[in-house]
Nucleic acid binder design. Structure first.
Lengths: 200, 200
DNA sequence: GCCATCATGGACCGATCAGTCAAAGATACT
DNA sequence: AGTATCTTTGACTGATCGGTCCATGATGGC
């Protein structure tokens, strides 16, 4: 009963994304994806082309949606890397605390299952993690510290971000997650002042 | 063709543990578990009693095996919390670098899939994470810093540990993981000296 | 040495998986 | 208005899932 598409592709992608986000790739059945999006199998295959392809598009949608928020937070405090990282963690913590969205983070979830994903999807997850790392690195670029130290700090911030997502999946209370993020921020602050002082 | 057990229960548990560790609960089929252990379905059910029960016993075996190593590392430097945490991360990093064992960490893997596990297994994972946290906390107990700060530091160390496991699953090189651990150690050191100084 | 007991392997079960396909109907072009 | 093109629905396929069951045969107690 059609001729032209009967649904909003973006909205369907949002719903499918949440299913992968909540259950992970393996536990997200096409029936669950169909129920969440309100689409039959034919529509899913016609619009997105199979579970793998749908998953990849959900990864991209996730990266676009939240990557924009990360970018905004990280660039809102030019010249103040510590503030930028704090703002970055604030975005992450706000999303984790948002009850209208699954626990954790789709990227972290996918990273944990990376070895069981098909190689191209696994590579895609790696690329998204690297994008996040480069974004954080760019926010640190203003500092006069050793570039190599900045690389390490960026990796560190991404690592802590992943750990927040993972721990939130086990029901770790928001207050504990906030203190982890706060400690990571002091790491960034201390490391920057230390290496800057040495260099001056 | 038997009368008495034909296999080493512990060795079979080790093999099954690795399957769960590598693939996660959902992707670990009974066929894969049977192939890895060399056991038929009848033996698996007779000895362990179903996939859920087997999974729980694998969690316990993992916790016992590596928990002992954690305990040893954390208590090897009494009165020196920073050294203890460094030793703790050394154990984790050594296991991650060990090619004879799957990437990541079974607990982290299970934590990521926690919402899709049956409630009792999910609770079990939480309990194991809490045990790890208490172990780290005990190693920090000697410090004269604010006990609440020590609680936060213990959670922080556990969080970074989880992130190391998660990142290693995406193929993050050992050197980057080591720098993340090193930064976390400086955070512990700085926080301890800082709050101790304030308190004195 | 006989027999009750038990572990083993493999066939089997219903459920569910991802993916395919054809019938049916709605649209757009001519 | 007629027709070609497209989407949608839902049934269907073969594979695989976790779990059960039973015939087989080895064991240990008596």
């Amino acid at each position: 009963m059609s001729g032209r598409k009967q649904f909003d592709v973006g909205a369907a992608l949002d719903q499918a994304m949440r299913v992968f986000w909540q259950r992970g790739y393996a536990d997200a059945s096409l029936d669950a994806l169909g129920a969440a999006t309100g689409l039959g199998r034919g529509s899913l295959y016609g619009a997105f082309g199979g579970k793998d392809a749908l998953f990849r598009q959900c990864l991209d949608r996730y990266a676009t949606t939240y990557g924009a928020q990360y970018e905004q937070a990280l660039t809102a405090h030019p010249g103040d890397p510590v503030r930028a990282v704090e703002a970055f963690f604030d975005v992450v913590l706000a999303r984790i605390a948002d009850p209208s969205v699954p626990a954790g983070c789709l990227i972290a979830q996918s990273a944990a299952q990376s070895p069981t994903l098909k190689e191209d999807n696994s590579a895609h997850v790696r690329a998204l993690l690297d994008t996040q790392r480069r974004r954080v690195r760019a926010a640190l670029a203003g500092s006069s510290a050793d570039p190599h130290v900045l690389d390490e700090l960026a990796t560190f911030v991404v690592a802590v971000n992943q750990s927040l997502a993972l721990l939130s999946r086990t029901g770790t209370p928001d207050a504990e997650l906030r203190s982890v993020a706060r400690l990571a921020c002091t790491t960034v602050a201390d490391t920057l002042t230390r290496t800057t002082a040495v260099q001056n």
